[in-house]
Design a protein around this nucleic acid. Sequence first.
DNA 1: CTACTGTGTTTCCAGTGTCTACATTGACGT
DNA 2: ACGTCAATGTAGACACTGGAAACACAGTAG
Lengths: 212, 212
Amino acid sequence: MLGRMPDPSPQRPYHHGNLRSALLDAAERGLRERGAGQLSLRDLAREIGVSHAAPRRHFADRQALLDALAEAGFVRLGAVLRAALAEGGGERPFPSRVRDAVVAFAHFATENPALCELMNSGKHRPGADDVARAAAAAFGQVTDLIREGQAHGALQEGDPEEVGIILYATVQGITTMVNSRMIDAERLDGLVDTAVAQFLRGARPPSEPSGR
Amino acid sequence: MLGRMPDPSPQRPYHHGNLRSALLDAAERGLRERGAGQLSLRDLAREIGVSHAAPRRHFADRQALLDALAEAGFVRLGAVLRAALAEGGGERPFPSRVRDAVVAFAHFATENPALCELMNSGKHRPGADDVARAAAAAFGQVTDLIREGQAHGALQEGDPEEVGIILYATVQGITTMVNSRMIDAERLDGLVDTAVAQFLRGARPPSEPSGR
DNA sequence: CTACTGTGTTTCCAGTGTCTACATTGACGT
DNA sequence: ACGTCAATGTAGACACTGGAAACACAGTAG
């Protein structure tokens, strides 16, 4: 039972080298495996093999760590959206592009429930503009998509940000309900499909010569 | 204002009488004022004037208390929706009824951010069917509304629960974004309006003689 | 060589959730 | 009237947490 010791070999350098990212990595794993509530700074320190006060040099606060996780989550979400939208070149029909982005978002959210809960949490610490910035960056993808749809005549005119918020919020809401087990996970794909369909029908220009 | 004291007179009966609801009340206040994270069983016990282990008789767990709060939240939400839908008799036009319900929901959510975060939290403790039941009851109001719309020909046919989920999720998502300060609170009403408008346009029967 | 700065360590403290043993009730059957 | 019993509240202990302060160890610039 000596395996718990803090690395009996004195080989470990006094300075870890990049504790900060090691902390973020470990925290992200712990977040996925046990949820944000069970995330303890001391646990992370133990797992990495540093003293319990070491993390404090990199995160002033437990909340600061959580905020950093949320920020990283938004960055990843932004990348996921970008990838989904880039795929297949820029020349797929608009509805397909919307669908791709939404499906990618929905899967990201249901595969990282605790992370999303963190991202949507109301209580980031006061000066957390990093989180806000990262969120805005990810969100910009949606706004751009809407703008594109409007430019191509696939959507009505209107504040593209407002329309984007509604689309984003719908997916966010559906995945939240799935993640909170309020609705069954198997319904996700069906729900997303009809949500996209309704969105497109509700947001397209009125009574164009409908035959297409 | 002598009610705040821990009752120095030894008159306080050994048994509080209804500690459980006193705890829920205090917890709800604390939730609103300081968020779920800062909610401590010992604090509540102190505030009420009982020993620190007393709450354990009524809530096995801290999480059990939080679950009970979430459950109560869903009950209140259900009442809010019911009231919004009952108002003005059953004979207002369908779009107005939808709008009323949605606005009521949105306001409830933005006025009780911490509560809603709890309600949408993924991690209720394993055997928390009470929460699920309360949520289903509140949610039933929405499903009923959709069903009504379909019966009156104001909405397409289709699984009313699925359509209801989408509507509910949209509002839930918007308010979450407002509560997390991702978007400004002032945009709420505008967003809700266009969300409802888009929902109705996207979900109504196709190409009825449109002139109305 | 020295001072300084960035990181990690140790030691301490208050506070928390949870557990266990015990005390105080009121209700109920006899 | 009385003993029993379940419900409820109390007291104390434990392990753990986040946070603060003082200190130790390097690399680096002067």
